[in-house]
């Protein structure tokens, strides 16, 4: 079943075309990775879906019914489409528990479970500003997760993490996968993507270059030329 349907999307910043005629679908139950070189439009695509950037033209529909391009970022989040930012952004001045509470829209019942899931169950009182980089990444995933989103978008979840932390993150994502949830991951770490993703879309200069399994992407001539290298 289709969660997010992007059709004919065009985004421009002044004269610069960030996304050109992009169409793709994100299904429930899958982990869909979006990869591509810098400037390919990956984060911009997430910005459009989460309502931070307005496209020049094109539609983004949720569950085949709700048009997201006209909603505010808040309304989109409330509709269950949530996102972790590229730069880890947690509320430094608040404790881990308070961060999760805010993430859960005030529903305290899920805090403990979420904290266990992200491995911070014993750190609830700790100020988020004192966490390590990896813990901050997980805490942010936890905040996004705390409201049990239907669409979960993760922008570079393993950037700057150690190998061990990357493994844990991959396991975390595997446990988050479910028939009622679509997961979108933007990432540069190809091995990580191959481990978690059911499907990849390769973007290049705002267009779709390839769509399919990661193993096939690695064989694709064009993908190798513009992105993976030989």
């Amino acid at each position: 079943m289709i969660a997010i349907d992007v059709a004919g999307l065009n985004v421009r910043f002044g004269a610069f075309r960030a996304i050109t005629d992009l169409s793709l679908t994100i299904d429930y139950g899958e982990v869909h990775a979006i990869i591509g070189p810098n400037g390919a439009g990956k984060t911009t695509l997430l910005d459009v879906i989460s309502g931070l950037t307005r496209p020049v033209s094109g539609r983004v529909t949720l569950d085949g019914a709700r048009e997201l391009t006209r909603l505010s970022d808040t309304a989109i989040a409330r509709a269950g489409v949530r996102r972790k930012f590229q730069k880890p952004s947690v509320f430094m001045a608040l404790s881990v528990g308070e961060n999760l509470e805010i993430g859960g829209l005030g529903d305290a019942s899920l805090i403990d479970e979420t904290a266990r899931l992200i491995g911070l169950a014993d750190q609830l009182q700790r100020p988020a500003g004192t966490l390590s980089h990896g813990q901050k990444q997980w805490l942010e995933i936890g905040m996004v997760l705390a409201a049990r989103p239907r669409v979960l978008m993760l922008d570079e979840p393993v950037a700057g993490l150690t190998d061990g932390e990357t493994d844990l993150t991959a396991e975390l994502i595997a446990t988050l996968r479910g028939p009622d949830r679509a997961i979108v991951v933007v990432e540069h770490d190809m091995d990580f993507v191959e481990r978690i993703a059911d499907r990849v879309t390769v973007l290049h200069e705002g267009r779709t270059l390839f769509e399919g399994a990661m193993a096939d992407a690695r064989q694709d001539r064009q993908v190798i030329d513009v992105y993976l290298g030989r």
């Binding site: 970022d73 808040t74 989040a77 930012f85 952004s89 509320f91 608040l94 805010i102 409201a147």
Partner: peptide, 10 residues
């Protein structure tokens, strides 16, 4: 501390 983050949490 992070208004955009809070908005994107709904």
């Amino acid at each position: 501390d992070d208004e955009a983050r809070l908005r994107s949490l709904g």
